[in-house]
């Protein structure tokens, strides 16, 4: 029998080679080897490297350093603060509440928080912050305009048209141009107060102030101890009635202490003591008058 050994040049693959080739052609095995294995190697290498805390620290330090170096490039540096639309004192207080050490990187500036802090100031109505090219922190401020002076037990305060506090003042004389309000809760009703005062324009020179009574209604105080008691609801209309009377009959020029408009169906006048006396005398009602 011929030996079954392979001929000298055998093109046939060995059993092992044949099996390996078939294995290599198996799609799943192939995918595993081509994708899974490199992935595994990379993941395990990275995992091994990161298992040491020193390496993690080194990486994070390096990252922070790079970040810092980018942030501190001169293009991103803010060198000064410009405040527009604010008076000197308010600008001072804004600088006081924003303790920023210039120059500072624009990445370190928290503009929304700064805006909130500026708007917390009573005198500031609105603030717009932006970083202008050239490294300038631009703050556009709109101040609150004081509309009234409010007298409370604690002192005098300036309020704007919405009733928001602007600042305190020591004396009403400093702001004689502003009307005076008094009474608890007056600050909550400043717009109404301003309407009332606008209605009382004809007697503007005589107005001493507007008093909030029991956090309910207004009393317009004029000089010569005259006062106009206004109702809770629709005080402006009530005052308009009074003003019409004033216009027609010079009501307030007369010797009247109180115009009581609290009940709109029954406006009431209270005359001053002397006037009552005079009236009675004129009517001959006073005892003894005839005896004289």
């Amino acid at each position: 029998m011929r030996p079954l050994s392979a001929p000298a040049r055998d093109p046939a693959p060995s059993r092992t080679a044949y099996r390996m080739h078939r294995l290599w052609l198996t799609p799943m095995y192939r995918r595993m080897l081509r994708v899974g294995l490199p992935l595994l190697v990379v993941v395990s290498a990275v995992g091994w490297y990161l298992s040491d805390p020193d390496h993690i620290r080194g990486i994070s330090d390096k990252a922070a350093e790079i970040r810092r170096s980018i942030q501190e490039r001169p293009e991103f540096m803010v060198k000064l603060m410009a405040i527009d639309g604010a008076s000197e004192e308010i600008a001072e207080s804004i600088r006081a509440v924003l303790p920023v050490d210039f120059p500072v990187s624009s990445f370190d500036l928290d503009l929304p928080a700064m805006q909130d802090r500026i708007e917390e100031l009573d005198a500031v109505d609105r603030a717009d912050l932006r970083i202008r090219p050239g490294g300038i922190l631009q703050i556009e401020v709109r101040e609150r305009v004081p509309a009234v002076v409010w007298r409370t037990a604690q002192g005098l305060e300036l309020l704007d048209a919405e009733g928001h506090r602007v600042s305190s003042i020591e004396s009403h004389l400093k702001r004689m141009d502003l009307p005076l309000l008094a009474g608890e809760g007056a600050d909550e009703m400043v717009p109404e107060a301003l309407e009332v005062l606008a209605t009382a324009e004809p007697v503007a020179s005589r107005i001493r102030g507007l008093v909030r009574m029991g956090e309910r209604r207004w009393t317009l105080v004029l000089d010569r101890d005259q006062s106009i008691l206004l109702p809770e609801s629709r005080p402006v209309q009530a005052l308009e009635q009074v003003m019409a009377l004033e216009h027609a009959q010079d009501l307030l020029a007369r010797d009247i202490a109180v115009v009581d408009m609290r009940n709109e169906n029954r406006p009431t006048l209270r005359m001053s003591g002397k006037a009552v006396e005079e009236l009675r005398r004129a009517k001959g009602l006073v005892a003894g008058a005839g005896a004289e």
């Binding site: 093109p11 046939a12 080679a17 044949y18 080739h21 052609l25 198996t26």
Partner: peptide, 16 residues
């Protein structure tokens, strides 16, 4: 011989 033929054909087809 069968192995040779099958392997070559598989190689050409690139499929098992």
């Amino acid at each position: 011989a069968i192995r040779t033929a099958v392997q070559a054909a598989q190689k050409m087809a690139n499929v098992r």
